[in-house]
């Protein structure tokens, strides 16, 4: 499963000035992050490789474009 190991999480926590993150917390953070990262890779695999763009504003535009008439 792709994702950070515990040491990487501890380093990242230090970068974020999160001194409270210990080894046990880092293990759980790594597991949660790995599952989310894996899902992104899995979803990307459904689409042709290319340049990925888009932001949250595009999402609202997509929602509005897909609104239909009352059935």
């Amino acid at each position: 499963m792709p994702g950070p190991d515990t040491k990487t999480v501890l380093d990242l926590a230090q970068l974020q000035q999160q001194a409270w993150v210990d080894e046990a917390a880092a293990q759980r953070i790594a597991a949660g992050a790995a599952a989310a990262i894996e899902a992104v890779h899995a979803a990307l695999a459904d689409f042709e490789a290319g340049l990925q763009g888009g932001d949250a504003a595009d999402f609202l535009a997509a929602l509005e474009a897909l609104a239909g008439d009352e059935p």
Partner: peptide, 21 residues
């Protein structure tokens, strides 16, 4: 704190995938 271990490109890819999905 779990987001501290999610790389920025992964987050942005999750956003970019959202309208497509």
């Amino acid at each position: 704190a779990t987001g501290f271990a999610i790389p920025a490109p992964i987050y942005l890819q999750a956003q970019a995938l959202r309208p497509l999905l």
